[in-house]
């Protein structure tokens, strides 16, 4: 059986191998997704994001266990940063998920960002599709520990869970633009610590100032290590899903995300065309030298490149 058949017949080694191909940008991965594209779009995708050490992995572990109790199958994509210097990475999200390793209804894959910015790896979207084709009911994407602007998760997930912890900063942090705007559901983890109530008030205030929408992101106190509040958090995620479905927002989001992904794919291909030495009439390195020596300005150089590939 080839990889494609093994993937659709539920062979987890095939899924693992596919994910490797996708991560290595192997054309075979794209070919398989092309063949099986009609089978995608069934899994519900939950993004888990938040600062480093907030408890994203532990919370993902606990949410997954609740879903397993309900008989649902789960895929987890856990992203950690790749070193910009060596290309190496230490992927440690599994440490918090040990009980799930031998559960046949759970598939976990750790990924390095491999140079991709925005909090996800470049292969995250193909990985979601593969787990979807494989038949997982729910897919968690755990982002790298985020700072202020790693918001790619909002373009990939149906529901974004923003994991906060008490004591990270004052209310000004909460009203800055960026990651604070993308949460559909907020979880204040480690809420048995001092300052959890203050964090909650600051978040509520931030939401008070936000543009009024039909869905106001609820804020939940949880303690992931003891499972406190996790069931309620999952209920909240389900409520958000129901809201998306009933309001028509789900279709809008998937439209927006697919549009974004398509544009990105085209961008990538165009860039490949430009950077690959295909014996075209221009050479990108020559252009750079000409720009540096002021024979041409950088805007005209860009137009020259675009003129050649569109012409």
């Amino acid at each position: 059986m080839d990889l494609q058949d093994r993937l659709t017949s539920g062979d987890s080694r095939a899924l693992a191998r596919f994910l490797t191909l996708a991560e290595n940008n192997d054309p075979e991965a794209a070919r398989i997704i092309k063949e099986l594209y009609s089978r995608t779009g069934n899994a519900y995708v939950i993004g888990v994001t938040g600062p480093p050490g907030a408890g994203k992995s532990t919370l993902t572990d606990k949410l997954t266990k609740k879903l397993r109790q309900k008989g649902k199958t789960v895929g987890i994509i856990a992203v950690d940063p790749t070193s910009p210097f060596t290309g190496g990475a230490l992927l440690g999200d599994r440490i918090r998920m040990q009980d799930l390793f031998t559960d046949p209804g759970v598939f976990i894959r750790s990924m390095g960002t491999r140079g991709h910015l925005g909090g996800l790896s470049r292969a995250t979207q193909s990985a979601v599709k593969a787990m979807d084709i494989f038949g997982k009911d729910f897919i968690f994407i755990e982002t790298v520990g985020v700072g202020q602007s790693e918001v790619d998760i909002v373009k990939t997930a149906d529901t974004v869970v923003m994991v906060m912890v008490p004591g990270l900063g004052d209310d000004i942090q909460a009203i800055k633009a960026g990651i604070m705007e993308i949460g559909d559901v907020f979880a204040i983890n480690k809420s048995d610590r001092d300052g959890a109530d203050k964090t909650k008030i600051e978040l509520e205030m931030m939401l008070d100032f936000s543009e009024k929408k039909d869905w106001r992101p609820p804020i939940h106190n949880v303690v992931a290590t003891t499972d406190a509040g996790v069931e309620e958090l999952l209920e909240c995620i389900f409520k958000h899903r129901d809201y998306l479905m009933d309001s028509g927002e789900f279709k809008k989001r998937r439209y927006r995300n697919t549009r974004e992904e398509l544009i990105n794919l085209v961008k990538e291909r165009v860039l490949e065309l430009i950077l690959k030495d295909t014996g075209r009439e221009y050479n990108i390195d020559d252009l750079v030298s000409r720009v540096l020596s002021k024979q041409i300005d950088i805007y005209s150089a860009a137009e020259e490149v675009l003129g050649k590939i569109s012409g």
Binding site: S12, R13, L15, A16, R17, L19, T20, T82, S83, T86, G87, G88, A89, L90, L91, G92, R94, I95, Q98, F101, T102, F107, I108, R109, S110, G112
Partner: peptide, 29 residues
């Protein structure tokens, strides 16, 4: 050290059974 040598290292933590190790190795390919 393996990370610094450019490898992707998946660290799974303490007290693993052989079954856990093998399942993780397969899923992580």
């Amino acid at each position: 050290a393996l990370r610094d040598a450019g490898m992707e290292v998946i660290y799974t933590g303490l007290r693993q059974t052989p079954e856990q190790i093998v399942e993780a190795a397969i899923q992580e390919d």
